[in-house]
Design a binder for these strands. Structure first.
Length: 145
RNA sequence: GCGGAGGGCCGGACGGCCGCCUCGGCCGGGGGUGACCCCGCCGGGGAGGAAAGUCCGGACUCCUUGAAGCGACGGUGCCGGGUAACGCCCGGGCAGGGCAACCUGACGGAAAGCGCCACAGAGAACAGACCACCGCCGGCGCGUCCGGCGGCCAGGGUGAAACGGUGGGGUAAGAGCCCACCGGGGGCCGGGCAACCGGACCCGCAUGGCAAGCCCCACCGGGAGCAAUGCCGCAUAGGGACCCCGCGCGGGCUGAUCCUUUCGGGGAUAUCGCCGCAGGGCCGCUUCAGCCCGAGGGGUCCGGGUUGGCAGCACGAGCCGGUCCGCGAGGGCCGGCCCAGAUGAAUGGUCGUCGCGGGCGGGGAGACCCGCCUGGCACAGAAUCCGGCUUACAGGCCCUCCGCGCGA
RNA sequence: GCACCCGUAGCUCAGCUGGAUAGAGCGCUGCCCUCCGAAGGCAGAGGCCCAAGGUUCGAAUCCUUGCGGGUGCG
C-alpha cells in the first residue's frame, strides 16, 4: 500500500486528527428531516472521484458569543448505489470519513450533505475518500466567499 | 481409484487503534419539587441461512350482533399420520424414469351434464353411411365389365387419437364366430385403518381424449393489517359546501307544561318526557334469537393540522443438553440458559498477521516442495413475531449408499 | 405492509373464448415518380412472443415459479 502522500502515517493507525475532539470546535449533528435535505439540495455542490458534497451556510447561524453553532451533516445513498448492503456500506464509510475530516475542516453553522456514488464510494481507498472530502470542502468554502 | 445418489453442517480466524446501538449496575458528576433526564465509569448483548421474494399458514390487534341452512366467491385434491395451522413435512400406495443407490408426479370424478377435438381422413364420438371384399341371379359391346339381391365382417393413403391386440382354427369371403396368451369389465373371497394389493370365478367384451375448458363431489376459508391498536402531548378546529333516507299512529300516563277548581280533584295533549304499536337499521338471502334507533341517521368533497413521545416490542408454538415413545415427521418428561431491538434506521471504519483462491518463477521422473506478487474471498442487512415454501450463493467439511475397475 | 397491472418487430400497440402464415401503424431498405427533396405508389427485410418448467396431439394464449418495469391504497 503506497498512496501518494500519506501525511503523518507511520504505523497502521489512521490520522490522529480523528480523535473525538468536540469540546473545542462546534458540535456535530446528523441531519434527519426531509426539509433539511431539500434545503441543502438547492445549495452549492462539488463532485469528486469518490463522492459528491452539498454544502451551505445556514442563515440563522453564528450566534454572537454564545455556544458555537453546530455543524450538521447528512448522508444520502439512493437506490442507484446498489442494494441494501451496498448502500449501508457506502453510508458507513461516508460517516467514518466525515468524523475524521469535518471536525477540523468543517465550518460552524454549515450544513453538509455527503452523497455516495455507485461502485466507487465503496471501492475507493479510505485515504482517497478523505482527500476527496477535504478537497470538496475547500472548494465550497472558497466559492462561498 | 473413477463416476454417481441421498442427508447434515459451516459459510473466514485472531489482534491493535478509533467509533455506533441497546440492556443492567447503581459507582461518580450535573439538572429537576418530583416521576425522571443528561454526561462519565464498569459489566453483558448486538444480523441471516436465506434476515430476501412476499407464494402459503398462524399468533396478536381492531372492525363486523349470534346461530343454523342456502347461495356466491376463492382455495385445496391418492391414502394415513404429524402440527397451533398449512398448499408444509413424514410414512405408505400407484404411475413414470434410471443397470442401481435413488429421483419425479396438481395423482378425486370423463356410464351427471354442457362444450371442444384444427389439418388430413370413408368416418372424430348414439355409430352407422361410403369405397372395396365374397356368393347367387340377370345382361351384353364376353371384359375378369355393368346392374340387381344377399352376406355386413376383416381391409381403406390418414391422424395425436379410430369401438380390444397377437397368433391359430374356421369360412364363399369373413368377423370373439371359436380357441390360447395379453388387455378390459363385473361382483365375490382374503390381507390392509385406508389408498391399494392378491386369488379363484364369471362376461367374448358395449360406452376415446381434454376437467392447469365450464362443471360435479369432498374438505377448508369473515375483513383489514403493527403506518393494526391504546394512552399522552402539541397544533388547529369546535368549521364550510352538497347529497340521500326519515321525523307515522295510539295511550293520557300526570313527570313537566297549560286550563280550571268548591283545592280533594277534574280536563287538555300543541310542546318536552314516558309507554305501546307500526316503521327502520344491525350478516348476500331465509329462519330463529337478540340488540339498537324511534327523530335523527348516513355519505361525498373542501378547508385546517401533520418535528411528536410512550406502550404494542421481544420469555417465545424460544434455544441447548439428556432421557423415553415412535420406522419417521414429531411428541412427552427432566435439567440448564435469557439470546438484536434500530426508526435518515445501530451491529462498523481502518491497519496488521494467518487461512483459502489465483498468477509468476525455481527444484523434482512424479506425488509434491520452496520463493515472490495479489484492487480476489460468495449471495446478501432484522423493522411486530413465529411455522413453511421458493429463489440467490465463492469455497469447504462430515456421514451413508450405488455402479464400474483394480488388489487381497 | 397490502392490492393490482404490463413485458409481442427499432418504437407504439393488436392478437390472449388454445389450431399452425403472429398482424397493424410509424420507422428502416430498395425501386418508381421529380431538375432535387417532401408527399405519394410498389416491393422487401426485421420476432427463439421476458425466462424456466408443466398441462395438451398442439401454448403468444392455460397453470406454476422467477426476473424486469409500472400504478394505487394505508
Amino acid at each position: 500500500m503506497t498512496p501518494p502522500k500519506a501525511p503523518d502515517q507511520t504505523d497502521g493507525t489512521p490520522p490522529s486528527a480523528a480523535l473525538s475532539c468536540p469540546e473545542v470546535s462546534a458540535p456535530l449533528r446528523t441531519m434527519k428531516t426531509r426539509a433539511e435535505f431539500l434545503r441543502a439540495a438547492r445549495a452549492d455542490k462539488q463532485g469528486t472521484k469518490g463522492l459528491l458534497v452539498q454544502g451551505r451556510a445556514r442563515a440563522e447561524a453564528s450566534p454572537e458569543g454564545g455556544a458555537p453553532a453546530e455543524i450538521r451533516v447528512g448522508y444520502t445513498c439512493s437506490k442507484k448505489v446498489g442494494n441494501a448492503v451496498a448502500r449501508n456500506r457506502a453510508k458507513r464509510r461516508l460517516r467514518a470519513a466525515a468524523r475524521a475530516v469535518i471536525a477540523d475542516d468543517g465550518r460552524p453553522g454549515w450544513d453538509y450533505v455527503l452523497i455516495g456514488k455507485r461502485e466507487v464510494t465503496a471501492a475507493r481507498s479510505f485515504e482517497g475518500l478523505l482527500s476527496d472530502l477535504r478537497y470538496a470542502l475547500r472548494k465550497l468554502h472558497e466559492r462561498a466567499r
